[in-house]
């Protein structure tokens, strides 16, 4: 490859670079035009506040993140516990199988109720409503401050779980 590129004369290399630039320019024009012509509901903003996206907040806070496949594995495992950080009414309407409700208010008191199942090194998965909520991340940070060492955030949350056909449970029981 290096030999091939260096064998090009300067003029040929410039013509090749010009062709590459043309491809890039056409691609950029098509990509931007397609977004403008897209229905408003599916149009992507030119910029978004990715710095405050929950996944990036978790990354900067050092909270491991898992996605749908990892969440399915953890929820199906008996080695660990899943906490739903949403309010009790949302939890009762539907939650991941086996998940315990642990809304942010008064976490310490509520943890006492689960003390028999919990150790500080128990693998813990936390989730909330979806990518637009930060309650699960806040819960993970709270649990970490209480000494829990194996915390993972599922940012897709209940909304993604349901969207991809995951089983759910309703009511106050896990």
């Amino acid at each position: 490859m290096t030999g091939g590129a260096s064998a090009l004369r300067r003029g040929d290399a410039l013509r090749l670079a010009g062709a590459a630039a043309a491809l890039l320019a056409v691609s950029a024009a098509l990509g931007l035009a397609a977004n403008v012509l897209r229905p408003a509901a599916t149009r992507l903003p030119w910029t978004s506040d990715w710095a405050h996206h929950v996944e990036n907040l978790a990354f900067r806070a050092g909270v491991p993140v898992t996605f749908l496949e990892g969440a399915r594995t953890r929820v199906g495992s008996t080695n660990g516990i899943t906490f739903d950080a949403r309010i009790p009414e949302q939890y009762a309407a539907g939650h991941l199988p086996g998940a315990l409700n642990l809304p942010l208010e008064d976490v310490e008191r509520q943890l006492v109720a689960h003390a028999a199942r919990l150790h500080l090194d128990t693998p813990v998965l936390v989730y909330c409503g979806g990518a637009d909520c930060t309650d699960a991340l806040e819960l993970a940070l709270k649990l970490r401050s209480l000494g829990f060492t194996d915390l993972t955030l599922y940012p897709g949350g209940y909304a993604e779980w349901v969207q991809y056909g995951g089983a759910t449970r309703a009511g106050d029981a896990p």
């Binding site: 691609s27 990509g31 992507l44 030119w46 910029t47 996206h53």
Partner: peptide, 29 residues
């Protein structure tokens, strides 16, 4: 764009632009 963001390589200001243009570069090339 979410997939691009998950690589955490680009500054946030460029994530959407790359997500909009990169697939069309794949198409034209």
């Amino acid at each position: 764009a979410l997939a691009v963001n998950r690589y955490r390589i680009l500054p946030g200001e460029f994530v959407n632009l790359v997500a909009l243009v990169l697939p069309w570069i794949e198409l034209t090339t």
